[in-house]
Nucleic acid binder design. Structure first.
Lengths: 231, 231
DNA sequence: GCAAAAGTGTTTGGATTACACCCATGC
DNA sequence: GCATGGGTGTAATCCAAACACTTTTGC
């Protein structure tokens, strides 16, 4: 029935690649590592590695991310799968990419295992990467942009307390557009935000109010069909 | 460095599953096959099979679909990847799901290989399927619904010439809502449709005009930022 | 006072909604 | 004639864009 023995199907491997997005200095950044091993030695790459044959994919993504960057307890979402037979020089390896959104300030990253260095690189300033990682990263960033338009995931990137300007700049950077301040604020007025007493400090202009996203309220409103996230 | 030999990573297999969506009788349907082999003999399933170790994924999806259903020349899009280590009884098999949208009338389907029967099943009337195929199908249908809101893919499901009512009913079925006829027509008035002289026939009411989607014009308009598809 | 960004209000035109009405066909 | 859906118009409302203006801080 098959043109090869059934058992010969079981000769492939797979890997996971973890695209970690963060936001700081008004830029969306991806976490990259510098490879200290062949192939693509000394190239920057997305953190990723082979999956053990008895390991589930989301677990593998968590493990690999931790081994290479020290990051843990981040929520991973599946992105795309890349399976070109020639994409890996050592054999057939298909890779499943995962992505996560984190608040850069809340985590510490540290290169380990065969990662020589880690770095947060602004998404529009990424150099030539190992393997097909530029392709993987770009297509995952596109997915992120889509989600930014339809789901309240921007709050996973913003600090717990943020100004409305930081919020706006996140969208301006993602979509490379400029937005009107007054209109932006009108647009988001349905999103349940909590205003804090505390204000921005040490700025040479009027300090901005700090806000937090009220996730519980948002979920109640969406259940009632009362608030749909649309940017 | 790894807890197993490097070569032992190369002991897995992967498969592709093809979710083919169509639209007829005001219902969105999926193409299912009846398995004549173990495991899950006599269960209905999504067409899918193992990928050869030297085969690219999109090609595998095309081949498998053709072998089981006779369908060819359909444009496949990647959906999700399912990799639970226990999802296949014969060993580690991760599956990449692909989906396609076709005009049911334009194709003929015919069961072959180990598919005993093929059938178009309305998406809300799908029985218990083999493996984790209900899960795969549902989550791909959700993806389809998302795309129906943001991309002009509804025209891949509708016949080349369609009435505005058929168009509306497609959305009503997908989202299980009722829409106002007049308002629906206003909403779609930016979409470049071609009105034909030809009319609907053999209906016991005023015959409806037939329309086609003008893809070239749509693409010109989107490039100019003049027309964004939003439903 | 000045620069810089925070924060708000107004106007306008275009979409969305709900609803009413007329039209063409088969029987 | 009547049932059935095709097809269009209107008024009220909501929303988005453009733009102007006031406020609060550091220096």
């Amino acid at each position: 029935m098959y043109r090869i023995e059934f058992s010969n199907f079981f000769t492939s491997a797979f890997s996971v690649d973890c695209i970690i997005f963060g936001y700081s200095e008004d830029k969306i950044k991806a976490l990259l590592i510098k490879r200290s091993v062949k192939p693509f030695e000394n190239y920057w790459a997305v953190p990723g590695d082979l999956v053990y044959p008895d390991e589930d994919l989301p677990q593998a993504a968590e493990r690999v991310l931790f081994e290479l960057t020290g990051l843990k307890n981040v929520e991973m979402h599946q992105s795309e799968t890349f399976g070109n037979p020639k994409r890996h020089p050592e054999g057939r390896v298909i890779t499943i990419s995962y992505f996560a959104l984190i608040r850069i300030e809340d985590f510490e990253v540290k290169a380990s295992s065969w990662a020589e260095e880690v770095s947060w690189v602004p998404i529009f300033e990424v150099p030539k990467l190992a393997f097909d990682h530029n392709h993987i990263l770009n297509s995952t960033f596109n997915l992120l942009c889509q989600k930014l338009q339809n789901d309240p995931i921007c709050f996973d990137l913003l600090p717990d307390r943020f100004t409305l300007n930081e919020f706006q700049k996140l969208y301006e950077y993602a979509f490379q557009v400029e937005m009107d301040k007054a209109n932006f604020r009108k647009k988001i007025k349905n999103i349940p935000l909590v205003a804090h007493e505390e204000k921005q400090k040490n700025v040479n202009h009027r300090p901005a109010k700090l806000f937090s996203f009220n996730k519980e309220n948002f979920e109640k409103l969406t259940e009632l069909g009362d608030c749909r996230f649309k940017m």
